[in-house]
Amino acid sequence: MKVIFLKDVKGKGKKGEIKNVADGYARNFLFKQGLAIEATPANLKALE
Rank of each mutant, 00 (worst) to 15 (best):
E48D: 12
E48A: 15
I37H: 04
F5H: 01
L47I: 11
A36P: 00
P41T: 07
L30W: 03
A39T: 02
F29L: 09
L35A: 06
G24F: 14
A42P: 07
A46Q: 13
E17K: 03
D23Q: 13
G16P: 00
E48M: 12
L6W: 02
L30P: 01
I18L: 07
F5I: 01
L6S: 02
D8P: 05
G24T: 13
G16F: 10
N28Y: 13
A42S: 11
R27Q: 10
K2M: 15
L30V: 00
L44Q: 06
E48I: 12
K2V: 13
K7L: 11
N43Q: 06
L47S: 07
N28M: 11
K32D: 09
A36E: 02
K14S: 10
G24N: 15
K15Y: 06
R27G: 04
K14A: 10
G13F: 14
V21H: 02
G11H: 07
G24D: 14
K2H: 08
F29V: 14
K2R: 14
K2I: 13
L6D: 00
G11D: 08
E17G: 02
L6A: 02
L47N: 08
I4A: 02
N28Q: 11
P41R: 10
D8Q: 05
V3H: 00
N20I: 15
K19G: 07
V21Y: 06
M1A: 06
E38D: 05
E17Q: 12
M1T: 13
M1H: 05
G16E: 01
D23I: 15
I37Y: 02
R27V: 14
G13R: 02
V21F: 08
I37A: 08
P41V: 12
N20T: 15
K7W: 10
I4M: 09
K7F: 14
K14F: 13
T40P: 03
T40Q: 02
K2Q: 14
F29W: 10
G16W: 10
L44V: 08
E17S: 08
Y25E: 11
D8H: 09
K2A: 13
A46Y: 13
F31S: 02
A36Q: 00
T40R: 02
F29I: 14
I37Q: 06
A22T: 12
A22L: 12
L44P: 02
I4E: 01
D23T: 13
P41S: 10
I18R: 02
A36S: 02
N43V: 08
T40V: 05
Y25S: 06
G13W: 14
Y25N: 07
A42I: 07
V9H: 04
D8W: 07
K2L: 10
R27T: 11
K19Y: 08
A26S: 05
K12R: 13
K12W: 15
K12E: 12
V21S: 02
G24E: 15
G24R: 12
G13T: 03
N28I: 09
L6H: 01
N43R: 05
V21A: 03
N28D: 14
I18G: 01
D23H: 13
A26L: 12
V3K: 00
F29G: 04
K45P: 05
K12Q: 15
D23M: 15
K14V: 10
G16L: 07
V21R: 00
I4S: 01
Y25D: 07
E38S: 06
K10Q: 13
K2N: 12
F31D: 01
T40N: 09
D23E: 15
K14L: 12
K7N: 08
K2T: 14
L44I: 13
E38R: 07
A46M: 13
A22I: 09
L35P: 00
D8I: 03
K45Y: 09
N43M: 06
N43K: 04
V3D: 00
A26M: 10
N20P: 06
K19V: 12
N43P: 03
N43A: 10
G11M: 06
L35E: 03
V9A: 04
N43F: 06
L30A: 01
Y25T: 07
A46N: 12
L44F: 04
A39N: 03
G11V: 01
K2P: 08
K32Y: 08
A39I: 03
F31K: 03
G13A: 12
N28H: 13
L47P: 06
I18M: 06
E38K: 07
A42G: 11
V21L: 06
A42V: 08
Q33N: 15
P41D: 13
N20K: 12
K32L: 12
N43S: 07
D8L: 05
N43E: 06
A39S: 04
K32Q: 12
P41A: 13
N20Y: 15
R27A: 10
E38I: 08
K15E: 08
T40L: 04
A39F: 07
G13E: 02
G34I: 03
I18H: 03
Q33E: 13
L44N: 03
G16S: 05
K12H: 15
F31I: 13
A36T: 01
L30T: 00
K32S: 11
E48K: 08
Q33G: 08
K45D: 11
I37E: 06
A36L: 02
G11W: 08
K10T: 11
E17M: 07
V9D: 02
V9G: 01
L47E: 07
Y25F: 11
L47M: 13
P41Y: 11
A39H: 06
A39P: 03
L35N: 03
G16A: 02
K32I: 14
E48N: 07
V21E: 03
D8V: 04
G16T: 02
F5P: 00
P41E: 14
K12N: 11
V3S: 00
G11L: 04
L6F: 03
K12Y: 14
N43D: 06
K12L: 15
G11Y: 08
M1Y: 09
F5L: 08
I18S: 04
V3Q: 00
G16V: 01
K2Y: 15
G24V: 12
D23S: 15
K15A: 12
K45S: 13
A26Q: 08
R27D: 05
Q33I: 09
L47K: 05
K45E: 14
L44E: 05
V9K: 01
I4G: 00
K12S: 13
D8M: 04
K15H: 02
F31L: 13
A36H: 01
K10N: 12
G24A: 15
A42Y: 06
N28P: 01
V21W: 02
R27E: 10
I37L: 09
V3L: 04
D23F: 13
A39Q: 02
L30Q: 00
G24P: 13
